[in-house]
């Protein structure tokens, strides 16, 4: 009979411990992955292609698709306009109140969506909000309200992404550019911004995806009026509220497909950390 040496026993014991460790990790991860896959399979199994085609061809849903694409794109562009300078400022410079600004920008991320919508609604009932509506254009319960509701939440995620992006880019090349004759602006636009291209694309995709999924703030601030402020999540809500499960599911699957495309694009551009 072969007697195991102490080293051999430790190796065998180690293998069992490894198996237990990785088995535990795998089981916990697996439960979540299976849950997501089960959701998708259940969605696809519940409806037929004919139902999908009929629902997607409806005038209301087509309007919601178009409005979603338009408002998400506008929100993403607006988010980038804020996120690029804000992310750069917060990651590169120490100034009085920086921590407070950082904290304030994170508020829309942690605030319940309905509260964001309610706050926007109240803001536009104040003197300030009414002045904006009188001077520019109507906002509340109109398409601009959809964009503003999406932008308020999406921008916070975009700023966070850009802040991480700029903090990963060394400040040294920018400093070198300044010694070579570039102003601060030239060094930023010629040296740092091109290096942040991947981060900008990631932040844009993230802002777009967040905007697409936004529902709570839009419901409260823009309402859920058919052919007016109806975006895809609103359609799901409206169809469900009248018991049209097939149409609600068709729109949901459309959003799943869009999410898959967005995830693919995000992976393509190296956004490994996930969407927010």
């Amino acid at each position: 009979m072969n007697q195991a040496t102490p080293g051999t026993e430790r190796r065998r014991g180690g293998r069992w411990h490894d198996a237990g460790f990785f088995g535990g990790l795998g089981a916990l991860t697996g439960v979540y992955v299976v849950l997501i896959l089960a959701l998708l399979v259940a969605d696809f199994g519940f409806t037929s292609m004919a139902d999908l085609g009929a629902a997607i061809a409806s005038r209301e849903i087509l309007y919601a698709v178009k409005l979603s694409l338009l408002t998400c794109t506008v929100s993403a562009v607006l988010s980038l306009w804020v996120a690029v300078p804000a992310g750069y400022l917060l990651s590169r410079y120490n100034f009085p109140g920086r921590r407070w600004i950082d904290l304030v920008i994170d508020i829309p991320i942690v605030l319940p969506p309905l509260v964001v919508g309610l706050s926007l609604l109240i803001l536009f009932q104040t003197v300030f909000g009414r002045a904006i509506e009188n001077a520019l254009f109507p906002v509340t319960y109109q398409i601009p309200a959809v964009i503003l509701a999406q932008f308020t939440v999406a921008c916070a995620f975009a700023v966070r992404t850009m802040r991480v992006c700029f903090s990963q880019i060394s400040a040294r090349p920018e400093q070198v550019a300044r010694t070579l004759g570039c102003s601060r602006g030239q060094a930023f636009f010629r040296v740092t911004l091109p290096q942040a291209r991947q981060g900008i694309v990631s932040a844009g995709i993230l802002a777009w995806a967040r905007s697409l999924g936004e529902f709570g703030p839009i419901l409260v601030f823009a309402g859920a009026t058919r052919m007016k402020t109806e975006v895809l999540p609103t359609t799901v809500f409206l169809e469900l509220s009248v018991g049209n499960l097939e149409a609600a599911l068709a729109v949901s699957l459309l959003m799943v497909a869009t999410a898959a495309v967005v995830l693919g694009l995000a992976r393509l551009f190296g956004m490994r950390g996930g969407l927010g």
């Binding site: 040294r172 400093q175 010694t179 570039c182 102003s183 040296v191 091109p194 291209r197």
Partner: peptide
Amino acid sequence: LDPADRGIGYVPQDGAMFAAM
């Protein structure tokens, strides 16, 4: 003066290449 106006040629430790150029 700003670094841009000092007219110094600066060579940093790691080269500090401009990655996108």
